Structure formats: structure tokens, C-alpha cells
Computed example of a mutant assay.
Amino acid sequence: MGFLELFLIALGLAMDAFAVAVCKGLGMRRATPRKMVLVGLYFGLFQAGMPLVGYFVGVQFSSAIRSVDHWIAFGLLSVIGVNMLKEAVKGCAGCSECDAAGTGADLSVRSMTALAVATSIDALAVGVGFAFLNTPILPAAACIGIVAFFLSMLGVKIGNLFGAKFKSKAEIAGGLILILMGVKILLEHLDVL
């Protein structure tokens, strides 16, 4: 897997964190650099850590299912992408569902940890896929974490400035990117590309 593919997967995975960061920004009176970095760190660290966990779980099973690993990677990325598209279509009127989940301006450890885990579950599944594809995990996890960090910071600022209109567009873009990357992996392993 090349850097461009890895970057696109990282971008797709970061869209959930970006969308929640937009909601965080909506709930803030002022998005200070400290608050933006704090949100970025939570999402970036969890987005980087979950693929590591998924990778080490996947390595335990990769030799047993080597012949279908590309199908598994395709399935995982496609399911994650389709779920992101469904969430985008459901919408978030004024981020009321975000506020109901307690994501407003609350930056407590409890709230941020829960959100960081929730938005990084997809990265766990991608880490399993990386194990099947023999992707070097440390550079992949670092790329995913860095992209999530910066997009989360940007999401807080955008939410604070412009509101929720970018949230569903980000989820749609992320979902489509993940589905396309899954298709690309499958086609490469089937020697179509």
C-alpha cells in the first residue's frame, strides 16, 4: 500500500472525528488554540492507537485466512464506508444528536475519551485489515493519527465559525473514500488493476 492510499484511508477514517469536532466547535463560545489542540490530541491519539490494537489482533489470524484477506479488507472498508454514508444521510439537525450525546462544549476526560473511542472503532477494524495486507503498522498508525489530529482541530474551528453544514459532507466524503479504497484493494488482489 502506497502513501497516497494510506493517506486517503486516514482521511476517510478522520471524517467521523472531524464531524464530532464540528459539533464541539458549535458548543464553544470561542474556539481557542488550547481547546482545538486538546480535541485534536484526543481524536488523533485514539485514531492512531486503535489500528495498532486491530493490527495485533489481525496478525493472530492472518496466516489462517491469507487466501481471503483482500475480501476481508474490502468488506471492512465497505461496511465502514456504507455506515458513514448512512449517518450522513440521517443528518444532524443543528447537531441536536451531538448535544444529546453530551458532545457540546464539554471537554472533560470522560466525555472526550468516550467520543474518541466511539469515533475510532472504525480505525480498529482497518488495523485488522492492515494485518491481512501486511501493511507496516507504525507508519500507517502515525499517518492516521496525524491526519485525525489536524482535521479535528480544523473541525473545532469550522464548527465554531460556520456551524454544522460541513458535518454531513465530511461523512459522505469519508464514506466514499473508504469504499473506493476497499474496491481498489480487492481489484489489485484479483489482478484487475
Results as ranks from 00 to 15, higher is better:
Leu38Glu: 14
Val57Tyr: 11
Leu26Ile: 15
Gly2His: 06
Ala101Thr: 01
Leu178Phe: 05
Leu180Trp: 15
Ile177Tyr: 10
Ala141Gly: 04
Ala73Phe: 15
Leu178Tyr: 03
Met1Cys: 07
Tyr42Gly: 04
Leu11Pro: 09
Lys157Ile: 13
Pro136Gln: 06
Leu190Arg: 03
Gly102Cys: 02
Ile137Val: 08
Gly91Met: 02
Leu38His: 12
Leu8Ile: 12
Arg66Ala: 13
Asp122Arg: 01
Ala93Phe: 14
Ala148Ser: 09
Val57Trp: 08
Val128Cys: 01
Ala148Gly: 01
Leu161Ser: 07
Val57His: 05
Leu180Gly: 15
Val109Ser: 14
Phe162Ile: 10
Asp69Leu: 10
Ser108Glu: 01
Val68His: 08
Asn160Arg: 02
Glu5Phe: 07
Ala88Asp: 00
Lys169Ser: 13
Met28Leu: 15
Met50Ser: 15
Ala93Pro: 15
Ile177Trp: 04
Ile179Met: 07
Ala10Gly: 14
Phe130Ile: 12
Gln47Thr: 08
Met36Val: 09
Ala173Lys: 00
Asn134Pro: 03
Ile80Leu: 11
Ala170Tyr: 06
Glu188Ile: 14
Ala64Asn: 13
Lys169Gln: 10
Glu171Thr: 02
Gly159Pro: 00
Val126Trp: 01
Gly127Ile: 08
Leu52Ser: 00
Ala170Ser: 08
Val22Tyr: 07
Gly58Phe: 11
Leu154Asn: 04
Gly25Ala: 07
Ser108Arg: 06
Val79Asn: 04
Ile65Gln: 09
Ile185Gly: 05
Val59Arg: 10
Val128Gln: 00
Ala48Glu: 09
Gly91Leu: 05
Ala118Phe: 10
Val79Lys: 07
Leu178His: 11
Val192Trp: 15
Gly174Glu: 10
Met50Arg: 09
Lys35Leu: 10
Ala88Asn: 01
Leu38Thr: 07
Pro33Ser: 10
Met153Asp: 07
